[in-house]
Computed example of a mutant assay.
Amino acid sequence: MDFDLAAFGDAFPRLLPAALTNLTIALVAMTLALIGGTVLTVLRTTGIGLLTGAIGVLISFIRGTPILVQIFLFYYGLPALGLDLTPIQAGVLAIALNSSIFITEIMRGGLSGMDPGPVEAAIALGVRARTIWTRVILPQLYIRILPPLVNELTTIVKGTALLSVITVVEVLRTAQQIANTTFRPLEALLAAAIVLFALNLAISQLGRRIETRFAARRG
C-alpha cells in the first residue's frame, strides 16, 4: 500500500486540536507532580524512619512498575474502592504520582550539590525550618534542576498518549479514530508522532530560553 500524502495532510486539522488535550493534561500533571515531589523531598529530610521507609517503598513500587499499569490501577482500581474518576482525572493523577517520584529523585540530587552556606547561616540566625525551605532552599533548587524538570515535562507529554487506552481523546486516540475511518493507519500515526514531537520540541526550546535567562541573571 503506497503512502497517501493527502491522507497524511488531512490528519493534521483533527490532530492539532487534540494536542491541546495532551498539553493541558501534561501541564496539570506536572504542576501536581512538582508539588508532590517537593513534599516528598521535604519529608525525606525529616529523618523519621517509618516515614522515610514508607516513601522508599512507594518510590520502589512506582519506579519498578510500568506507568500503564499505574494508569489502570487509578482508572479501574479506585472505582472499586468507591472513588469514581473520569478518564482524564484518573490519567492526570496516575501520571502526576509517577512523575512526582522522579522529581523527588531529581530534587534529592540537586540538594546534594547545593552550597550549604546559606542554610547554615539561616539556621544560625534561628530562622524557622519552614522559612528556610520556602525562602532559601527551594528557590535555588528549582533553578538548579530546571533542565531535568523540562526533560520530565517532555516525558509526561509522551506519557499522555498512554491515556488513549482509557478512552481519553488525545492525539493518539484521535489518530486511531482517523485510521479506523480512512483505513490509513500509517499516515494517521505518523502525523500523530510529528504533532507530539513538535509539542515536545517547543517545550524543550522554551525550557532552554528560561534556563538561559536565569543563567544570565546569576551571571
Rank of each mutant, 00 (worst) to 15 (best):
V169L: 15
R44Q: 14
N151C: 08
T38G: 06
P116G: 03
L186H: 01
R209Y: 09
V57C: 02
V157R: 04
L83H: 06
L163Q: 08
T181P: 06
R135W: 14
P13M: 10
T21L: 10
L186F: 14
I101C: 13
I35M: 13
N200V: 14
I123K: 13
L81N: 06
A175V: 04
L40E: 04
A96M: 08
L196H: 07
E105R: 07
I35W: 11
I88Q: 09
A124E: 00
L5Q: 07
L162T: 07
T45K: 15
S99T: 08
A175R: 06
A129H: 15
F8Q: 07
I55L: 15
I59H: 07
A90E: 07
A33E: 02
T21I: 15
Y75G: 09
M107Q: 11
V92C: 07
L141G: 01
P139S: 02
P79C: 11
A121C: 15
P87K: 02
D4A: 10
S60L: 12
T31K: 11
L68K: 00
G117I: 07
A7Y: 02
S164C: 12
I106L: 05
A124Q: 00
T160W: 02
G159N: 09
I203D: 05
R213I: 06
T212M: 10
I210L: 14
T167W: 12
P139W: 00
R209G: 08
G77W: 01
F12T: 06
L199P: 00
N98G: 14
T65H: 04
S99I: 03
F197H: 11
R108M: 04
E170K: 05
G9D: 09
A29R: 01
A202Q: 03
G159P: 02
L189G: 04
A179H: 10
L163D: 05
T134N: 12
V171H: 06
